[in-house]
Design a protein around this nucleic acid. Structure first.
Lengths: 202, 202
DNA sequence: GTCTATAGAGGGATAGAC
DNA sequence: GTCTATCCCTCTATAGAC
């Protein structure tokens, strides 16, 4: 038992596991390294979490939530206009991604490599189809495909973070100028999406 | 020595390596499995390619080329309009991605996990900045950021393939309906990008 | 060029003392 | 709860016969 203000051993391991898995992915991650970075040893890690797999699933569940659940409350909000929703989504995602830039690549690559693990865990379009956002979109254009548009919007917002290694390899793109570029895109993205949806024509 | 029409051992290994690396990523891939799927054994694989690392780099180099180089000739073409370039990019990428749907997730995740290997290999924005596409874009709006727009466009085109496991997990999205959706997006994407760039206002 | 056999290292997991 | 020591398996890579 630790002092109340101390970080519990369990949380230290969890935190170290996040770093390791996010940096190297499941297959390349070493639970030995997680233990060292948590300041404990291998046996104790297994005492708390039973196996590498179980520890990974815990981390992953939280990351998925963080990546996808962000958008749901915004889409459901009754008091905001479509335009406002676009602005809010851009702001929320940009902030979260600047805080955790490698989150999308991590989730995407693990989803690709072990889709079994995600079977029950993602409820995406069902929640979206019932949202306020859909109603507002249908008002503008009854034939529109809302999931399609949302994918495009998330692509615009998230893709720069996936391409960052490419940009960094060709340009000399340091942290500062990347962040500047992202801040500009944060403002532009809802306008672009408005153009796609034809919002200015109303 | 094989018959001329036979696939050489080297190519059999290469092909099997592609499958294995694309499916599991570098860290989880097993050269034993590559050897088995190539119809040979482990020792022979090392005889041809020296090491797992070297084999991987060969595969990766080709995949990067396939993913990024596709867009360069289109951007450089002097005889096509901006609108036509958008259509061509959409068509080329859609066709390539339908042919090899897991290519982007593979490249992105390996880039993230081992950026060292890509240092010299990607020349992206330098080639783009000199292209015909840039001149045409500057005519419309001298203040536009062409790399930014290109990232958005590639995001729109590529992101659905990265999200596919998500879509498959929530909907029941089979191969056929995914392909239909992509074919629709192929036609819509250049229009959307035209809206973003304000092409219809000219 | 192609094989069998094995060296050699590293990783996940557990036994058992404290 | 936490540690040290170790088991045991799997993987890459190579030696050496054919």
């Amino acid at each position: 038992m630790k002092k109340i203000n101390d970080i519990s051993t369990e949380d230290k391991i969890r935190k170290a596991a996040e770093n390791e898995f996010m940096k190297k992915g499941f297959a390349a991650a070493r639970i030995r390294d997680i233990a060292v970075n948590a300041g404990i040893n291998l046996a104790l890690l297994n005492y708390y979490f039973r196996s590498k797999e179980k520890l990974f699933e815990l981390v992953m569940a939280e990351k998925i939530e963080r990546l996808f659940a962000l958008v749901i409350p915004v889409l459901n909000e009754k008091s905001t206009s479509l335009k406002q929703k676009l602005v809010l989504i851009s702001e929320h995602y940009t902030q979260m991604l600047l805080d955790e830039p490698s989150l999308p690549a991590f989730v995407i690559s693990e989803m690709q490599q072990q889709p079994e693990k995600f079977a029950g865990r993602i409820r995406f379009s069902s929640e979206i189809m019932k949202s306020e956002y859909i109603s507002q979109l249908k008002e503008i254009d009854p034939n529109t495909n809302p999931v399609d548009h949302l994918i495009s919007y998330l692509g615009i917002l998230i893709f720069p973070f996936l391409m960052r290694p490419v940009l960094a390899a060709s340009d000399t793109l340091d942290d500062k100028s990347f962040k500047e570029q992202i801040e500009k895109r944060k403002k532009l993205a809802p306008i672009w999406m408005g153009n796609i949806l034809g919002l200015d024509k109303i």
